[in-house]
Every structure is written in C-alpha cells, then in structure tokens.
Simulated scan of single mutants.
Amino acid sequence: MSRELWLLRHGKAEHLNGDEDYDRVLKKRGKRDATRIGQWLNENALRPDYVISSPAIRAITTTKIVCDVIGIHHQDIKQEKRLYDEGLFRVKSVLADCPSTFKQVLMVGHNPEFEKLITYLVNDNDLFEIEKLLPTGALARLQLPDDWTRLEQGCAKLLWITHPKTLFEED
C-alpha cells in the first residue's frame, strides 16, 4: 500500500431555508473549520498531489478555502459531479478514474457516501462504535493499494481522522 486517499467532508453549512440542497452555503463555522484543516495540513507538511471536489456550493467552497491555505490554485481543483448524492458505487468510480501517478489524493464531498466509503474500504468493526464517523469538516486519511480500479472491501487502512474542533482553541 503506497497511495493515500484523504476524505474531507465539507464544512458546516446553512440549513435549506427553501433553497436547493446543492446551493447551501457554508456557515461561519464551516469556513473557520476549513481554514483550520488547511493550517493543520501545512503544519504537518501534508500536501495532496490531486484535489477532487463535489461541485455543490458547500463542498467547493470548503475545497477552495483549504487549497488557499495550503497553496494550491483553484484551477487545479477537479470538480466531479459523481461526488454529489450519487452513492458509494459512483464515488468508487471517481477513485477508479484517478490517475495512478497521484499518490496523495484529497477528495472533498458529502455523507452518507464518505462514511459508507470508509466503512467499505476499512472494514473495521470498531468504526461502527463511533457515533459520527465523519462529521462536517472532518478529514480522514486512508492508505490504499496502488490500483484504485479494483478497490475491494477491507483493502484500506485508516491512518487517522482529524476533527477541526480539536485542532485549535475556540476564537
């Protein structure tokens, strides 16, 4: 195993208030948490080779904030509609399409797909004991086999999950 997948759930977003779910914007907390995750990545010298984001407003905004902090240009973000509300199979198809030259891939998107992906790839019964595996703004780092075209159940190792609220003192 030498490739890594970093799954970042979008930051905390506003409630619907009559708008389409796709168009929900980040709350102040969501923006702050995305900045914290970016700062934490910098502090730990973690920089992805490739960034993929759901095009939903709350996800792409989270992605852009993190990329601003870690020094990745917005034009280098690949927006992928299969990451928005299309299920586990479609998210796995996005991974299968990732060029194998990229060793650390940051994917920004949504639950329930990301939690389903983690539990599928890691296949660790201890994950089910966590009340909320990937709350808003959380970042999971997984180690996967080199070939992402055939990701089988239980093939990954969960290295850690980082929650923005645990990174810094409240402002």
Rank of each mutant, 00 (worst) to 15 (best):
Met1Arg: 08
Arg3Met: 05
Arg3Pro: 07
Arg3Phe: 04
Arg9Asp: 13
Arg9Asn: 12
His10Arg: 12
His10Asn: 10
Gly11Arg: 03
His15Lys: 14
His15Ile: 10
Leu16Met: 12
Asp21Ser: 13
Asp21Gln: 11
Asp23Lys: 11
Val25Ile: 03
Leu26His: 06
Lys27Gly: 00
Lys28Thr: 11
Lys28Val: 09
Arg29Asn: 07
Arg29Leu: 14
Gly30Tyr: 07
Asp33Met: 04
Ala34Gly: 08
Trp40Gly: 00
Leu41Val: 11
Asn44Val: 00
Ala45Arg: 13
Arg47Glu: 03
Pro48Asn: 12
Pro48Ser: 11
Tyr50Trp: 12
Ile57Val: 15
Ala59Lys: 04
Thr61Asn: 02
Thr63Ile: 06
Thr63Ala: 14
Lys64Thr: 09
Ile65Met: 07
Ile65Cys: 07
Cys67Asn: 06
Asp68Trp: 00
Val69Phe: 05
Ile72Glu: 03
His74Gly: 00
Gln75Glu: 15
Gln75Ala: 10
Asp76Thr: 07
Lys81Ser: 13
Lys81Gly: 05
Arg82Gln: 12
Leu83Asn: 07
Tyr84Ser: 07
Asp85Val: 06
Leu88Gly: 00
Phe89Cys: 00
Arg90Cys: 01
Arg90Lys: 14
Val91Tyr: 15
Val94Arg: 12
Ala96Trp: 02
Asp97Ile: 03
Asp97Cys: 11
Ser100Val: 04
Ser100Gly: 03
Thr101Leu: 06
Phe102Trp: 15
Val105Asp: 03
Gly109Ser: 03
Gly109Arg: 02
Gly109Trp: 01
Asn111His: 10
Leu117Phe: 06
Thr119Ala: 00
Tyr120Val: 00
Leu121Thr: 12
Glu129Arg: 14
Lys132Cys: 03
Leu134Ser: 03
Ala138Val: 06
Leu139Phe: 04
Leu139Pro: 03
Arg141Lys: 15
Arg141Pro: 00
Leu142Val: 06
Leu144Met: 12
Leu144Trp: 03
Pro145Trp: 03
Asp146Cys: 01
Asp147Asn: 13
Trp148Thr: 11
Thr149Asp: 02
Arg150Lys: 14
Leu151Tyr: 06
Cys155Asp: 09
Leu158Lys: 12
Thr162Ile: 12
His163Leu: 14
His163Met: 07
Pro164Ser: 06
Glu169Ile: 05
